[in-house]
Design a protein around this nucleic acid. Structure first.
Lengths: 212, 212
DNA sequence: CGGAATCTTGACCAAGTTCAAGCGGTGTGG
DNA sequence: CCACACCGCTTGAACTTGGTCAAGATTCCG
């Protein structure tokens, strides 16, 4: 039996905030409203999660409120595993999100898969280090858009589930810089925007050449 | 039988550049001169390494030569495992270094340990993301010194095996900025320098409070 | 001793941040 | 239904941090 994916008590959020269904397989499905916490820094690590629909951000805070988003997770991606026995990060649903929840037993049984996931997570973080440590604002945004595009299936049309602030905190920039760079890419007709969250990659080659 | 830890042919480097000795355990020991490559981007992943003495830097390059050092490895630390079947990074000995070399078979046998290592590596990279993405130059240097200090056993005396350039490329700064910050910390008598590579942490509390 | 690295310092510059205001869509209450 | 407040996003102007370029100091070695 797995523990139900019970979010911590949050008095002013309704119970319909999430829903759980027993699934055929060895997991449950939980639904989270936009902004809802999946786990918090310090929580013990009990489960890991596979995004079914929606999107999740994983981040850390400094004492003065600065935030670093370390990863976004889109449908099909697995997150929630960390070193040690307690989370060092916060995870939140960005939009309305449904997650498949896997318990501890499942993680132990699948430790071979978990190794591959951990190695991939390490590679992803290290790649991100290069982007943040050594690339300028335009390069960071270009790399971000390309990465997101590939993870959404390589289509030219791109739907951003996250806000400009989320992107800024992911790329180590400010919201204003993100906005300005997007405007600049639009002006050069590398991309076009239907609205702020819907991006069309007009010249993928140009975008690719921008991120070195 | 394990393959000998044979570095790739490098015509103008001498054979005495490295030495191999059969050990009691399931590994060999290899010695690398300062600057010697351990593996290169693109090499197939055959082994992993445990630092015995010396230090190693792991890094990636952009096409225009910008470099991001993703990790340093000090005695006792293990590196060389990555996702996929080929290295995405370069690894080089910083100073004269001896490494214990573990072959593929050993890695498979110890996949449980490898999982812990991979999770720790991911945590380390993600922590580093926060530092590079959201902290200013002084905070980065302070965090770097504290981290290094703890990994060398928590002693106040600190020996830097790496150059200012290595530190700059690790922290996403320039060599000049690293130098200026070190000078500033010295001026505030948070640290004192015996020489450029030997740092004494005079006020550990002050250093700690600098990195938030 | 001479030459090459490595490190430090200074002056100037530019990328990105900060601060402030405005825009546009959405939801709410009178 | 409209007015209004709110939120996320954009834009502009001034400012700051860290980068660039250049020169000098120090250390390391042959």
């Amino acid at each position: 039996m797995y523990a139900v994916a019970q979010p911590k008590d949050q008095p002013f959020q309704q119970a319909d905030d999430f829903a759980l269904n027993q699934m055929g397989g060895p997991h449950l499905v939980a639904t989270y409203k936009a902004g809802r916490e999946v786990y918090a820094e310090g929580d013990s690590i009990e489960k890991c999660y596979k995004v079914d629909t929606g999107a999740v951000r994983v981040y850390r805070l400094l004492s003065d409120g600065r935030r670093q988003v370390v990863s976004f997770h889109l449908p099909g991606e697995i997150f929630g595993f960390e070193a040690g026995s307690n989370h060092c990060f916060f995870a939140e649903a960005i939009t309305e999100t449904t997650l498949a929840v896997f318990g501890r037993r499942h993680m132990q049984e699948r430790s071979r898969d978990l190794l591959a996931l951990a190695l991939a997570g390490m590679a992803r973080a290290q790649q991100h280090l290069l982007v943040i440590g050594r690339q300028c604002a335009v390069e960071r945004i270009a790399a971000f858009l390309i990465d997101l595009c590939e993870r959404q299936g390589g289509c030219r049309q791109l739907r951003l589930p996250m806000s400009r602030q989320d992107i800024a905190d992911y790329l180590g920039l400010t919201i204003e810089t993100v906005s300005r760079v997007v405007t600049k890419l639009k002006a050069r007709s590398v991309i076009s925007l239907k609205d702020a969250r819907t991006i069309d990659i007009v010249r993928p080659d140009a975008l690719r050449s921008l991120c070195n």
